[in-house]
Design a protein around this nucleic acid. Structure first.
Lengths: 155, 155
DNA sequence: TAATATAGGACTGACCTGGTCGGACTTCCG
DNA sequence: CGGAAGTCCGACCAGGTCAGTCCTATATTA
């Protein structure tokens, strides 16, 4: 496996969407859900968790919605993934030691922990800004408006 | 999440154990299972799959057992993980396109695919030999025999 | 032939995931 | 000022996957 959950997927999509929205631009859960064919309530739950983790700011009421709490360049995909799926743990024993029966006799814990560090580094270096800079792959929306010149430097 | 399954854990433990066994040394499933407190039948199934994938060689009968099919330096943890858990797929749509409802409208597929490449690289660079070179962390077995001087370079 | 080992299928229970439903809050409009 | 619409929020349910078990067949050796 080593696959991230669908909620994390949705979270990344929403974060990118909000980043493309530009500074202080906000979108409602319904708007995002309809655009990407995501179940509304499920996306709402994802967004709620992102708010609780301080990655998004929410505004209730008729004209409410969500917006990024920080600059896109200040948010890594590792932040988003960990906010949704919890800490990145390659092995069961890397978080809390109690859940692994082989804790005492395990012989691969330390090396795998180093692997985890490298994965986490890879996830940490990729930011939401980098996601937003990527080409929308045939989308004909207003997203193009926010595609800055920094895209050339990333590829 | 982003956690690898327990079967993959067991597989890595067994691979390291066999690597410490030295050249052409073989161990039975029972021996490994008892040493690390792993359910015997479950470990057996894991080892069988490693055989089918060509990472281990098995020998049936009374004095049977398993041994590495290749040199420890020639086997990466990515090989082992993919043999057990299937291909490493960060997103649902990266393997077969049919399983993702948002395939057409997804806006983070390409960037995440790049992240997958980096994770796969991190997993591919770590070999079974590197696992075996690591200190057994307080184990008083014959493992010390195979601890080479290269350990200092790893930490 | 008996003992021991791998090979492999079918089955079960627990856990997690994706998805849904009703309630609480804020803003807008008459 | 008050109702109503719209949105966020927390608890709830169903399905699938995973870890683990059981049973049988096959192969090898003493």
């Amino acid at each position: 496996m080593l696959r991230l959950s669908k909620k994390a997927d949705y979270a990344l999509m929403a974060m990118k969407h909000l980043a493309l929205r530009g500074d202080r631009g906000s979108s409602s859960a319904r708007e995002i859900a309809e655009q990407y064919d995501i179940p509304i309530e499920l996306l709402a739950k994802v967004l709620q968790r992102l708010v609780r983790r301080g990655l998004l700011a929410s505004h209730q009421g008729t004209r409410g919605g969500y917006q990024l709490a920080r600059m896109p360049l200040q948010i890594s995909v590792a932040d988003v993934i960990q906010a949704i799926d919890g800490p990145v743990t390659v092995t069961a024993c890397s978080t809390d030691e109690a859940t692994c029966d082989q804790f005492a006799k395990c012989n691969v814990r330390d090396p795998l922990w180093r692997v985890r560090e490298r994965i986490l580094a890879a996830l940490g270096e990729c930011t939401i800004a980098e996601l937003a800079a990527d080409v929308p792959a045939g989308a004909s929306q207003a997203a193009v408006l926010h595609r800055g010149p920094e895209r050339a430097a990333l590829r």
